[in-house]
Simulated scan of single mutants.
Amino acid sequence: MTAQEIRDYLAARVRVIVATNGPDGMPHPVPLDYGLDDQGRILVTSFRKSQKVKNLQRDPRATLLVESGETYAELKSVIAYADAEIIDDPTAIAEGMQLIRASPDLSASLSASMRDQVKASLEKRVLIRFTPFKYVSWDHSKLGAYY
Score class of each variant (00 low, 15 high):
residue 65 L to T: 14
residue 43 L to A: 00
residue 41 R to P: 00
residue 36 L to F: 09
residue 93 I to E: 05
residue 109 S to M: 06
residue 39 Q to I: 00
residue 132 P to E: 01
residue 71 T to L: 00
residue 76 K to T: 15
residue 75 L to C: 04
residue 44 V to T: 07
residue 137 S to I: 05
residue 120 A to Y: 13
residue 88 D to P: 03
residue 99 L to N: 05
residue 40 G to M: 05
residue 107 S to W: 10
residue 108 A to Q: 11
residue 106 L to M: 08
residue 67 E to M: 10
residue 62 A to W: 07
residue 120 A to E: 15
residue 91 T to W: 03
residue 131 T to F: 03
residue 45 T to M: 02
residue 15 R to N: 12
residue 69 G to Y: 01
residue 58 R to C: 06
residue 133 F to M: 06
residue 111 S to F: 10
residue 118 V to H: 11
residue 138 W to M: 14
residue 55 N to C: 06
residue 117 Q to D: 15
residue 8 D to W: 11
residue 26 M to S: 13
residue 26 M to F: 10
residue 41 R to K: 00
residue 136 V to A: 14
residue 91 T to D: 13
residue 51 Q to D: 07
residue 1 M to D: 11
residue 3 A to I: 13
residue 129 R to M: 02
residue 42 I to T: 08
residue 32 L to S: 06
residue 11 A to S: 10
residue 55 N to W: 09
residue 1 M to F: 11
residue 34 Y to D: 03
residue 27 P to D: 13
residue 49 K to E: 14
residue 10 L to T: 05
residue 134 K to T: 05
residue 127 L to A: 08
residue 120 A to S: 14
residue 42 I to Y: 00
residue 146 Y to A: 11
residue 71 T to W: 00
residue 6 I to S: 02
residue 125 R to A: 06
residue 62 A to E: 08
residue 88 D to K: 12
residue 107 S to I: 03
residue 105 D to A: 09
residue 11 A to H: 04
residue 60 P to T: 01
residue 35 G to A: 05
residue 88 D to F: 05
residue 69 G to C: 07
residue 97 M to H: 05
residue 128 I to Q: 06
residue 43 L to H: 01
residue 36 L to D: 01
residue 117 Q to H: 14
residue 78 V to M: 03
residue 59 D to N: 15
residue 63 T to M: 12
residue 76 K to F: 00
residue 134 K to D: 11
residue 137 S to N: 02
residue 90 P to A: 09
residue 106 L to V: 10
residue 112 A to Q: 15
residue 32 L to F: 01
residue 127 L to W: 05
residue 125 R to F: 02
residue 7 R to C: 07
residue 41 R to Y: 00
residue 115 R to T: 02
residue 37 D to K: 00
residue 116 D to G: 11
residue 73 A to L: 02
residue 55 N to S: 11
residue 146 Y to G: 06
residue 4 Q to P: 03
residue 86 I to E: 13
residue 102 A to L: 12
residue 135 Y to D: 12
residue 107 S to Q: 14
residue 113 S to P: 04
residue 13 R to A: 04
residue 93 I to W: 01
residue 109 S to H: 09
residue 96 G to P: 02
residue 108 A to P: 07
residue 82 A to N: 09
residue 142 K to D: 15
residue 54 K to D: 11
residue 80 A to I: 02
residue 40 G to F: 04
residue 51 Q to F: 07
residue 68 S to R: 14
residue 132 P to T: 01
residue 97 M to A: 12
residue 93 I to N: 03
residue 65 L to K: 10
residue 33 D to T: 14
residue 117 Q to Y: 15
residue 86 I to S: 05
residue 20 T to W: 01
residue 81 Y to K: 13
residue 21 N to Y: 06
residue 86 I to P: 09
residue 147 Y to L: 14
residue 131 T to L: 07
residue 122 L to F: 09
residue 81 Y to N: 13
residue 22 G to H: 09
residue 13 R to T: 13
residue 133 F to Y: 15
